[in-house]
């Protein structure tokens, strides 16, 4: 009995782990806005790459924000990959702390394309207006 049980675990243990990882990724895609490209769910080449997402910070240049600031690059990188409420708030807080401004208006836009007419445009995926007093 123990031998059968052991063999069963050895046969299906690793594949079960793979199924769990895929299930977690699918949940994150549907509930946390994770890009299908990442997270071990094998969803690469199923939607436009998150690289094409655009972060817009009102009155500021994103390029100058991330220049020589690994922490900002990492935080905004996560926002591109997973533009959910938690990540946009984290990004807005970091921008406020770094720039010492009183408020920040941060948006993330996702591209959509219509293959019928070639129309390529961006739609607002998430936004936040955060004041220093709310920190």
């Amino acid at each position: 009995m123990i031998k059968v049980k052991k063999e069963f675990i050895l046969k299906y243990g690793v594949p079960s782990l793979a199924v769990i990882i895929v299930a977690i990724q699918l949940c994150l895609v549907h509930f946390q806005d994770l890009s299908r490209w990442k997270g071990g769910g094998f969803g690469m080449y199923t939607e436009i790459h998150y690289f094409y997402n655009q972060i817009h910070v009102s009155g500021m240049s994103v390029d100058s924000l991330i220049k020589d600031d690994p922490s900002m690059r990492s935080t905004l990188g996560y926002l591109m990959l997973m533009p959910n409420d938690k990540n946009i708030k984290k990004a807005a807080e970091l921008v406020l702390k770094t720039t010492h401004k009183d408020s920040v208006y941060l948006q993330i836009w996702k591209p959509i394309v219509n293959s019928e007419n070639g129309l390529y445009k961006k739609v607002l995926a998430n936004e936040i207006h955060l004041k220093k007093s709310e920190l």
């Binding site: 699918l26 299908r36 094998f42 199923t46 939607e47 436009i48 394309v113 293959s115």
Partner: peptide, 22 residues
């Protein structure tokens, strides 16, 4: 199968929009 499931549940893929863009 995970790859198939991801594709089927992606409107952007099934409509051909993803391939068109890429």
């Amino acid at each position: 199968l995970a790859s198939v499931m991801q594709k089927i549940t992606s409107k952007q893929f099934m409509s051909g929009d993803f391939y068109y863009h890429a």
